[in-house]
Design a protein around this nucleic acid. Structure first.
Lengths: 211, 211
DNA sequence: CAAGAGTAGAAAGTAACACTTTCCAAGTTG
DNA sequence: CAACTTGGAAAGTGTTACTTTCTACTCTTG
């Protein structure tokens, strides 16, 4: 398959394909001479994944490259999910790297209360502390007594996530699916939450004022 | 308070304050002459909110303006949460407005199965259908039998959300808090999910291979 | 009362990002 | 052999969220 057909089959402009090649998101095709290269179905597939990560998942090109690198080399020292958790950008972490000791302490206590063992180099506890700090500054403080119920639900969600990944045996597919499940399910969950909010609110109103 | 003090107290450069004024995110101060205006504590507070929505919540300036407008005029026809749900940008919806009938139908069936009543002009079902379509194209299809458990958990999350908002009586505060809770809790929940994934996976591994 | 600092408001400039466009020389097809 | 396609590099583009610069004031301080 030449680049023009790859473009047609993946519904991606040739210029954009060249851009992804340049940026190292898409592996080059087999070169069949100075001005021609041969692409395969795996390139079509990879292009779909790139679009999913960037356009749908909101990743930058650089972040997508990191994730794809993790997907391509799943067995480098860490188990798959760990690599992905480090490669995937953290939701809403931008800017201030100020580790307010109060919230850091709170998150530590939360993880202990939940008996969640988290590796020391995980970026997530710090990011969580930053979000909690922001919420507090805005006058909506969340203490661990508020967070534990959320965390229990998150654990249930995580179990569902891992169940979906359990059925996969091929290890090279596992990493890709894991990335998709982790990242693309995030907006799905956010949307379900908003829909549930509306449904719950509607129900409350009809119950509060029966007729 | 003059602009320089507002800048100091809000830790925001003067230029950026002027930009927010220009863009209509920050209401102007009381003008005390051609070259001077008086700002108050509400401006400090508003600046914090703007930063939370944009830097932390990931909203664009335009989206933040819409949300703030909804926060400022809570009682225009719709109840607060409805306005916010329309003003808040949809997680990961960008681009293709193609309403694939298959997924639209699936979402409709899902909402019926859950007995969730959603208003017709809500953008969320369409966005959900788009995300489900993408997942399917990537080879990770989610049927309603997969989604219902997630939806049940989302309903529990929504109940926790609304509980937190219940304690508020002042209606002008309600809208602001609702925006903060809906938007800024989203990354918190995403982080809890990832932490739970890691904890769950660790537990599974130790159980699978006991010592 | 003059000098210097601060201010509002407008306009122009900037850095990052994700592309798209243009160009070229080399190869392929009709 | 003429027209088209390709890989590869370089330059250009549109958007976003600011920052910088400028001007014409005005208030404060010595």
């Amino acid at each position: 398959m030449k680049i023009s057909e790859l473009s047609r089959r993946s519904e991606t402009p040739v210029g954009r394909i060249k851009y992804y090649l340049r940026e190292g998101l898409l592996p080059p095709g087999r070169s069949m001479g100075v001005t021609i290269a041969e692409y395969g179905d795996e390139h079509v597939r990879r292009l779909r994944l790139i679009r999913a990560l960037t356009a749908r998942g909101g990743l930058s090109i650089a972040a997508a490259r990191d994730v794809l690198a993790a997907v391509d080399h799943p067995e480098e020292a860490r188990p798959t999910l760990g690599v992905l958790h480090h490669a995937l950008p953290i939701p809403a972490e931008s800017g201030d790297p100020d580790a307010d000791p109060e919230q850091v302490q709170q998150v530590k206590a939360l993880l202990e209360a939940l008996e969640w063992e988290i590796s020391d180099d995980s970026p997530h506890p710090r990011a969580l502390a930053a979000s909690l700090r922001e919420l507090k500054r805005l006058g909506v403080p969340y203490g661990n007594e508020d967070l534990v119920p959320y965390a229990r639900l998150a654990a249930s969600v995580a179990r569902l996530d891992l169940e979906k990944l359990d059925g996969i045996d091929a290890p090279e597919q596992l990493a890709e699916r894991a990335a998709v499940v982790i990242l693309l399910l995030e907006p799905v969950l956010a949307l379900l939450r908003r829909l549930a909010q509306e449904a719950e609110l509607r129900q409350r109103r009809t119950q509060a004022r029966p007729n």
